[in-house]
Design a protein around this nucleic acid. Structure first.
Length: 457
RNA sequence: GGCGCGAUGGCAGAGUGGUUAUGCAGAGGACUGCAAAUCCUUCCACGUCGGUUCGAUUCCGGCUCGCGCCUCCA
């Protein structure tokens, strides 16, 4: 049985869907004013693996990942770029789609955008005011009143007192409580705005997720995910809004993935220590990046460095090499009673332990190599497929070139031909010279009974 | 200051109250014209101080160090 670590209880709990086999899952996606960095990649890949495993386990998953396409930073960036907001967001949504596709991330079932749900937000804000959990102030802002929502802080494990004590920022004097957060922001002249009962304005950040999740999944659903940094205040506020408006439980299982780090520090926009997905993909195959992410547990911190990606690349090469030699059996149904498959399932059922699952993949590779077993190779490929790995033609993968490559496949084949002639003439010095030359260009040769095969790096 | 998470072998990274994680790297061997790949063998481990226990890396507590949240952030 699947167990999920629930942030609400800080423990692993058996996963019991509200209406099996249906599973409703919402993940906070990107604010589209810049390229995705590796932290975003981790969210996409991790929850992609979660959805894949849920589906492989027989659940009928509806997966929603939102797009925040209106917010202060978007407005500011559009202003800086002197381009319309719609053009800016369209550009970065397209870039995000490219990154996701490269990383093998399947499209969510729905990708709602904040700007498409303003009417729903107005309705929910109205309801919160009606239920006396929100209030409008003269300027046109509307705030959520945290003291009127019992249980505020239950997700992040903080009390209102703790939070007040820890305040680091001076707050506007018109809030009733410093911790009250904005639901609706009055527009300043020139800013994008929607009409509302409180005047022209735009939504606060948190309200969109409460509204869009309800729209697609209902007011009470199974799983809500996102990066650890969203736990507070974003997800805490979502709970306040949704439970405040509906009067019943919002989400049963909260999942938060760990940060990507650089030099032991969180990779973040504000620190400026981030690498965009496309920067990394210029030097590394996207599958290597996906493998690198999935090889760690989703809740652990993940340290990024070129050295670690090199390591991941070598490891992935071993897996593909095992597949190369074997006539992989057709994919089809997985025999879950097979010991490796059973352990794989056990690992994934234990809070999506992809690190353990990947280790089992290596054990299968060893079996496949040792026994020349197409059955093991086939199982390796099938199980890896659940993680979105090892689905390419092995030779194609092993010969794939990074962005900048000195030698073309044709050149390589040509040199291999010359070397074969030299070897036939038993001129091994010449043959070794050619091999050395190719090695220096990042190409490794392997002689076998049928001839010579090559791969990069 | 408040709250929380973590500390595993050269590196990365799972896990477990007593038994091999796994990968990369290293050493030796088999195979090879030599290599590569593969296989076999092998070195290297659980921050620190106490406690519980027949036995703790694994449970409990103190300490040290690191990280995160408390402000936008995946």
């Amino acid at each position: 049985m699947l167990r999920i670590h629930n942030t609400l209880t800080r423990s692993k709990q058996p996963f019991i869907p509200i209406a099996p086999p249906r599973v409703a899952m919402y993940v906070c996606g990107m604010t589209v004013y810049d390229y995705c960095h590796l932290g975003h990649a981790r969210v996409m890949v991790v929850f992609d693996a979660v959805v894949r495993w849920l589906r492989a386990s027989g659940f009928d998953v509806t997966y929603v990942r939102n797009i925040t396409d209106i917010d202060d930073k978007i407005i500011q960036r559009a202003l800086e770029n002197e381009e319309p907001i719609e053009a800016l967001t369209a550009r970065f949504i397209a870039a995000m789609d490219e990154d996701a596709l490269a990383l093998g991330v399947m499209k969510p079932d729905y990708e709602p955008r904040a700007t498409q749900h303003v009417a729903g937000m107005l309705a929910m804000i109205g309801k919160l005011i009606e239920r006396r959990m929100a209030y409008a102030i003269p300027g046109g802002d509307v705030y959520f009143s945290v003291r009127d929502f019992p249980g505020y802080g239950k997700l992040s494990g903080k009390s209102l007192e703790d939070l007040r004590a820890g305040e680091r920022v001076e707050v506007a004097g018109d809030k009733r409580d410093p911790l009250d957060f904005v639901l609706w922001k009055a527009a300043k002249p020139g800013e994008p705005a929607w009409d509302s009962p409180w005047g022209k304005g735009r939504p606060g950040w948190h309200i969109e997720c409460s509204v869009m999740s309800e729209h697609h999944l209902g007011s009470h659903f199974d799983i809500h995910g996102g990066g650890q940094d969203l736990q507070f205040p974003h997800h805490e506020n979502e709970i306040a809004q949704s439970e405040g408006a509906h009067g019943h439980a919002f989400v049963n299982y909260w999942m938060h993935n760990g940060f990507v780090r650089v030099d032991n520090e969180k990779m973040s926009k504000s620190l400026g220590n981030f690498f965009t997905v496309r920067e990394v993909l210029a030097n590394y195959d996207a599958e290597v990046v996906r493998f690198f992410i999935l090889r760690a547990h989703y809740r652990s911190p993940l340290n990024y460095s070129d050295q670690h990606l090199d390591d991941a690349r070598s490891a992935l090469t071993r897996l593909y090499t095992a597949l190369k030699g074997a006539a992989t059996a057709q994919r089809g149904e997985i025999d879950w009673s097979e010991p490796h498959a059973a352990r794989f399932r056990e690992a994934m059922d234990d809070d999506f332990n992809t690190a353990e699952a990947v280790a089992i993949l290596f054990e299968l590779a060893n079996e496949a190599n040792r026994l020349h077993s197409a059955r093991h190779a086939g199982l390796l490929r099938a199980l890896a497929g659940i993680l979105g790995l090892l689905q390419r033609d092995p030779t194609q993968y092993l010969q794939s070139a990074p962005a900048v490559s000195a030698l073309s496949a044709e050149d390589i084949e040509l040199r291999i031909g010359e070397r074969a002639a030299a070897r036939k003439a038993r001129d091994f010095a010449a043959a070794d010279r050619i091999r050395k030359e190719l090695a220096d260009a990042g190409v490794t040769l392997e002689d076998n009974a049928r001839g010579t095969v090559w791969r990069r790096q």
